[in-house]
Measured scan of single mutants.
Amino acid sequence: SKDTIRINGIDIDVKDLHEEWKRLVEEALKRGDEELAIELLERALKE
Protein backbone atom coordinates (compact mmCIF):
# COMPACT_ATOMS: atom_id res chain seq x y z
CA SER A 1 0.00 0.00 0.00
CA LYS A 2 1.22 3.49 -0.82
CA ASP A 3 1.84 6.34 1.60
CA THR A 4 -0.13 8.84 -0.48
CA ILE A 5 -3.49 8.80 -2.19
CA ARG A 6 -4.19 11.23 -5.02
CA ILE A 7 -7.54 13.00 -4.95
CA ASN A 8 -8.39 15.82 -7.35
CA GLY A 9 -4.72 15.99 -8.33
CA ILE A 10 -3.66 16.47 -4.71
CA ASP A 11 -1.45 13.89 -3.01
CA ILE A 12 -2.71 13.24 0.51
CA ASP A 13 -0.40 11.65 3.07
CA VAL A 14 -2.12 8.54 4.39
CA LYS A 15 0.76 6.64 5.94
CA ASP A 16 -0.70 7.14 9.43
CA LEU A 17 -4.14 5.94 8.37
CA HIS A 18 -5.39 2.54 9.39
CA GLU A 19 -5.14 0.03 6.51
CA GLU A 20 -8.91 -0.44 6.53
CA TRP A 21 -9.54 3.28 5.95
CA LYS A 22 -6.92 3.36 3.22
CA ARG A 23 -8.60 0.45 1.49
CA LEU A 24 -12.04 2.10 1.66
CA VAL A 25 -10.70 5.34 0.22
CA GLU A 26 -8.91 3.49 -2.59
CA GLU A 27 -12.10 1.55 -3.40
CA ALA A 28 -14.10 4.78 -3.62
CA LEU A 29 -11.50 6.27 -5.96
CA LYS A 30 -11.52 3.15 -8.15
CA ARG A 31 -15.25 3.69 -8.59
CA GLY A 32 -14.53 7.32 -9.47
CA ASP A 33 -16.34 8.60 -6.38
CA GLU A 34 -13.97 11.33 -5.21
CA GLU A 35 -16.59 12.91 -2.96
CA LEU A 36 -16.94 9.70 -0.97
CA ALA A 37 -13.17 9.27 -0.86
CA ILE A 38 -12.78 12.74 0.65
CA GLU A 39 -15.55 12.10 3.16
CA LEU A 40 -13.93 8.82 4.24
CA LEU A 41 -10.54 10.50 4.57
CA GLU A 42 -11.96 13.26 6.75
CA ARG A 43 -13.61 10.68 8.99
CA ALA A 44 -10.45 8.62 9.17
CA LEU A 45 -8.34 11.63 10.11
CA LYS A 46 -10.70 12.49 12.98
CA GLU A 47 -10.14 9.09 14.61
Rank of each mutant, 00 (worst) to 15 (best):
E35M: 13
E19K: 10
K46D: 10
E19V: 12
E19S: 12
L36A: 12
I5L: 10
I5S: 01
V25M: 11
R31E: 10
D11W: 07
L45Q: 11
K46M: 12
G32P: 01
E47G: 09
I5R: 00
E39G: 06
E47R: 00
G32T: 01
E35N: 14
L36H: 09
I10A: 07
H18L: 12
K15H: 12
I5P: 01
K2T: 14
E34L: 10
L17M: 08
E20N: 15
R31G: 11
L40D: 01
K2N: 14
D33K: 05
I12V: 11
E26V: 15
A28E: 00
D13F: 09
I10S: 06
K15M: 07
A28W: 03
I12C: 03
E35Q: 14
D33P: 01
G32Q: 05
W21G: 04
T4P: 07
I7R: 00
E34I: 13
G9F: 03
E26S: 11
G9Q: 03
I7F: 05
R6M: 14
R6N: 14
A37D: 00
D3Q: 05
I12F: 15
E19L: 06
N8E: 05
L41I: 14
D16K: 09
S1P: 12
A28N: 00
G32V: 01
K46E: 13
W21D: 09
E20F: 13
K46F: 10
K2Q: 15
T4C: 04
D16F: 13
L17S: 01
D13P: 06
K15E: 06
E47T: 07
A37F: 02
L40H: 03
D11N: 06
D16H: 13
K30A: 15
D13N: 14
L45A: 09
L24P: 03
W21S: 06
D3R: 01
L40W: 05
L17C: 02
D13T: 07
E42R: 12
R6E: 06
E20I: 13
I10M: 12
L40E: 01
G9T: 01
D3T: 06
G9E: 04
V25D: 00
T4W: 04
V25L: 14
E47M: 07
V25K: 00
I38Y: 12
I38R: 07
R43D: 06
K30T: 12
I7W: 04
I10C: 04
E26I: 15
T4I: 14
K15Q: 10
R23K: 13
H18Q: 11
E19A: 11
E20T: 14
E42A: 08
V14R: 02
A37C: 02
E34W: 06
E47K: 02
R31S: 10
K30R: 14
I38H: 08
N8Y: 03
K15L: 06
I10D: 04
E19F: 11
I10H: 09
N8H: 09
I7T: 01
E47A: 09
T4D: 03
L17P: 00
G9A: 02
R43M: 15
D11T: 08
I5Q: 01
E19W: 13
R43I: 14
D13I: 08
L24Q: 10
E19T: 11
I12Y: 15
E26R: 15
R23V: 10
T4Y: 08
N8V: 01
R23H: 11
A44E: 02
E27W: 07
I7S: 01
H18N: 14
R31Y: 10
I12W: 15
E26L: 15
E42G: 06
R6C: 05
V14T: 06
L40M: 07
E20A: 12
I7Q: 02
E27T: 07
R6F: 07
D33S: 04
L41R: 01
L45D: 07
L24N: 03
L29A: 04
G32E: 04
L41P: 00
G32D: 05
L41A: 04
G9H: 04
V25G: 00
L41E: 00
E26C: 08
E42L: 07
A37I: 04
